[in-house]
Design a binder for these strands. Sequence first.
DNA 1: CAGTGGTCTAGACCACTGG
DNA 2: CAGTGGTCTAGACCACTGC
Lengths: 253, 253
Amino acid sequence: MNTPLSALPDTPTPAFSPLYQQIKALILQNLKAGEWKPGEPIPSEMDLAARFRVSQGTVRKAIDELAAENLLVRRQGKGTFVATHTEHHVQYRFLKLVPDSGDLNTEGPAERTIVDCKRLRAAADVARALSLRTGDAVLQVRRVLAYGGVATILEDLWLPGVPFKGLTAERLTAWRGPMYSLFEAEFGVHMIRAEEKIRAVLPDAAQAELLAVTHATPLLSVERVAYTYHDTPMELRRGLYRTDTHHYRNELG
Amino acid sequence: MNTPLSALPDTPTPAFSPLYQQIKALILQNLKAGEWKPGEPIPSEMDLAARFRVSQGTVRKAIDELAAENLLVRRQGKGTFVATHTEHHVQYRFLKLVPDSGDLNTEGPAERTIVDCKRLRAAADVARALSLRTGDAVLQVRRVLAYGGVATILEDLWLPGVPFKGLTAERLTAWRGPMYSLFEAEFGVHMIRAEEKIRAVLPDAAQAELLAVTHATPLLSVERVAYTYHDTPMELRRGLYRTDTHHYRNELG
DNA sequence: CAGTGGTCTAGACCACTGG
DNA sequence: CAGTGGTCTAGACCACTGC
């Protein structure tokens, strides 16, 4: 059939979009609009098929791709759910630092300390990373993560001021669970993808003190930009990782 | 239908293997056995469906998964091909170090220098990583990669002696293209997956000299284990990356 | 043009979850 | 038990490639 579901103006090269891609786009719109919230189920495949006037198989293929991109989670017998950073088994999806002694969860959760949290105007590099203008309001947070009492991660992060209006050090400190889980629950911001640039560096004086290492200790510098739906950058994060007892683990396919 | 294609002894928990998973396993066997070689096409979906006595859709789903795992590459109108490290657009699939100035391919290929290449007996850590016994024969290679005349990567790598019998510094030097491409063509070893552990370190005297940096220059230490079919480790590689003009790029989904 | 992979459908049945 | 996602089939048609 391949009847476009929405009337589109004639484009010189329509490029042929399969039906299931159009369905996928429609589902994405609902997700972005917050119609279906993280953790909640979306309508069943049959429902969606009826709503969009296509076969179940076509809906299925659309959902398959969204599930492969970690936007949806299928659970046989129960339904299809909007992915969330709150679930235990996928918490810290974006944190690749693991203890050298296997990926054991014997380590337990990190002890978190908010060092600083303030609103300021975005410098040029921060603005560029967040697709803002230099001078726009941003929130800057500095925190330390420790494992077994040993400070291991120092993070500076910048958030666009508008969507994160009302975020304070108190709320960050009070929150139990991953920071991205708080972003979902309190600000409706769902991170779905991120890019990291990794380098080896030496800390400056302030950084060295917060991590309790010497100025000559090599550290992993991890610069992350995290994106919500439609590739909108919503966070810039610069982390310094100690790698004497931990390492950054990566899988290449 | 779900009739097992091979007679299996009764297992206490058969766990229910879908037909397409069985087909996938059969295709995998052919790949591992070298029945279909890297770069070559495998039989068409219709052929495989007839051979395995299942519908085209079932074969399709099996191939879909293998393509998602980068073992096969589909090309519409032409066929389905065994993945290879030789193709230009996916060369250096496992090398995540990119110049800071975008992912531009303006950089051109690295200048490669084999520093050392010798056979020796595996130390305990090398043996463990390669699933060998301590003392087994391994090949050790040390090489330097430079970009624009600047030495940027120093790599030590260890290969199991048996499958790589006959590999010499000369053949490494003479080979144009990725090393994994040589492994495919000359030794029938196809790397499909790898795991990396990344740390920040300082170089020892020999390393610093080869990279033309001081002893106090922080470097990225990248330890990789690469696997062929069925999770068989076939290479241990320890790289030292300069990250003053390059960075390790990673995507998180 | 024939052959390949890619899309879409309609329907049947299976496996899992929860009430 | 009804409802969900998961598998499998058979057949039609489309898009792309190469001869």
